[in-house]
């Protein structure tokens, strides 16, 4: 069975996949046990499966394992922990910015990517950056506030 070299959250893995077309999402969840990345649509339409690939957002449900090989992948688990959350995660916690939480991890990943390229976005820029992340519970306003908070805290700390 062909194997692929993945760099996930800073660690090197060699994963087997009988099909080079297997989505990265399934590899992350089933082979690496990184279940924070969620299946939402399988078509790159909802953003639940968002990860970072070389720092930019990627939809892991439509990214093949072959295409991910050798790229630097960050999943939600690579950001922070409940005890030591990443600043964006800390801001989400502070704003209680979730309801069911199913879309949350993908949204956090998009927010991290946004703040890396635009550290001080306005509300419209945040909304635009998150437009590929759907939320059904209606937590949008909290999420927008959380990302604005993360930007604010980021400014304070630099």
């Amino acid at each position: 069975m062909p194997s692929y070299a993945l760099i996930v959250n800073g660690a090197q893995y060699s994963v087997d996949s009988w099909d080079p077309e297997q989505p990265l999402l399934h590899v992350l969840r089933n082979q690496l046990g990184l279940t924070g990345t969620k299946f939402g649509c399988g078509a790159g339409q909802c953003g639940s499966c968002t990860v970072l690939m070389d720092g930019a957002t990627a939809r892991s449900c439509v990214t093949t394992v072959a295409a991910a090989a050798g790229r630097r992948i960050t999943t939600i688990e690579g950001l922070g922990t409940p005890e030591a959350p990443h600043p964006v995660q800390a801001a989400f916690i502070a704003e209680q910015a979730a309801q069911c939480g199913y879309c949350t991890c993908g949204t956090v990943m998009s927010a991290v990517a946004l703040l890396a390229r635009t550290p001080q976005p306005d509300r419209a820029q945040i909304a635009q950056a998150l437009d590929g992340n759907l939320c059904r519970c209606g937590s949008h306003d909290r999420v927008l506030r959380a990302v604005a908070r993360a930007a604010r805290e980021g400014r304070k700390s630099t």
């Binding site: 279940t35 939600i76 922990t81 916690i93 939480g101 991890c105 956090v108």
Partner: peptide
């Protein structure tokens, strides 16, 4: 009071039924 499930949900540690193996 903050919800007890959110830190895990926001850091990808929460176990949804989807994540049970």
């Amino acid at each position: 009071l903050p919800r007890p499930d959110l830190p895990d949900k926001i850091t990808g540690r929460h176990v949804f039924v989807h994540d049970l193996m």
